[in-house]
């Protein structure tokens, strides 16, 4: 009887400590980052400093270029990711509905999932040019497979008794997908979407670093070449914040879905 009580009263305290430890670690890191270059221990030329970063951030955010870079990158990402979602969900449900198709598709899908989509970039550029289209294609490929793979896994675990309910009440094929298969695989789908966001974002930046004349990746590459570490970091931070925000949103959806489906 005593152990659970102790654990219960002990856990929130530990949680608070952990949280503070995290904040303190960040503060210490920022302090060292600021002080060490000033003391000449490391070369500020390569590391920049938080205070310089803050100044650079103000400059960058005030520039029209930053916003047009951001708009371009987000456009490439959004179109590629959106297409991936729109194609991957029906594909995953369709292939997943048949155990045989699932068995056949799983291995090649897995191989394509594991291979980084960037290895296709040279080919995509050859086919689609160096502009928008090849970036969209890279994002599409990077996002598509995590979604399909996770949906297939979800379809594999689906409770046959719930599918039977659909049949009993006369669900059409389409109704079965939308009212049974899709909600039943929602936890898997959300995991797939979260992975897809990360991979898609990585791909668009990497593709821009390799070949482009604008966009966040291009600017990161350019600032790297001209050793504007402060500005490079502002752009890099932008990518982190976008990625973090999107996966947090999906994480919240996962929590909400989990809360309603389980007692």
């Amino acid at each position: 009887m005593r152990a659970p009580v102790r654990a219960r009263s002990g856990r929130p305290a530990a949680h608070g400590l952990e949280r503070w430890a995290g904040v303190i670690a960040v503060l210490v890191f920022l302090a060292l980052w600021e002080i060490l270059p000033r003391l000449g221990v490391v070369n500020e030329f390569f590391t920049s400093r938080p205070s310089l970063l803050a100044v650079a951030a103000v400059e960058v955010l005030a520039s029209a270029q930053y916003w047009s870079d951001l708009a371009l990158t987000m456009q490439e990402f959004a179109v590629g990711f959106g297409l991936a979602v729109v194609v991957a969900i029906p594909m995953g449900l369709l292939i997943g509905a048949s155990p045989i198709a699932r068995g056949i598709a799983m291995t090649p899908m897995m191989a394509l999932y594991i291979a980084p989509s960037m290895i296709l970039l040279p080919l995509l550029i050859l086919w689609l040019g160096v502009g928008l289209a090849s970036k969209i294609a890279v994002v599409f490929i990077a996002s598509y497979f995590p979604i399909v793979i996770n949906l297939l896994a979800g379809m594999d675990e689906i409770d046959g008794r719930l599918v039977r309910v659909g049949h009993v009440f006369g669900a059409s094929r389409l109704q079965l997908f939308s009212t049974i298969h899709l909600p039943a695989t929602m936890p898997h789908l959300l995991v797939g979407l979260r992975l897809a966001v990360g991979r898609g974002l990585l791909s668009v930046i990497a593709a821009e670093i390799f070949v482009s004349s604008a966009g966040i990746g291009y600017r990161i590459q350019m600032f790297g070449n001209s050793l504007r570490i402060d500005r490079l970091l502002v752009y890099a931070l932008t990518v982190s914040i976008i990625g973090y925000t999107m996966s947090r949103v999906i994480g919240l959806l996962e929590e909400r879905w989990g809360a309603r489906s389980v007692s």
């Binding site: 719930l162 039977r164 309910v165 309603r260 489906s261």
Partner: peptide
Amino acid sequence: FQDASLLPWRTVHGNVRFGLEM
């Protein structure tokens, strides 16, 4: 059925309407 045939992601109301939606 005996068990596990309500759709866990639908409310009571959502489950009862299921057949009519189909």
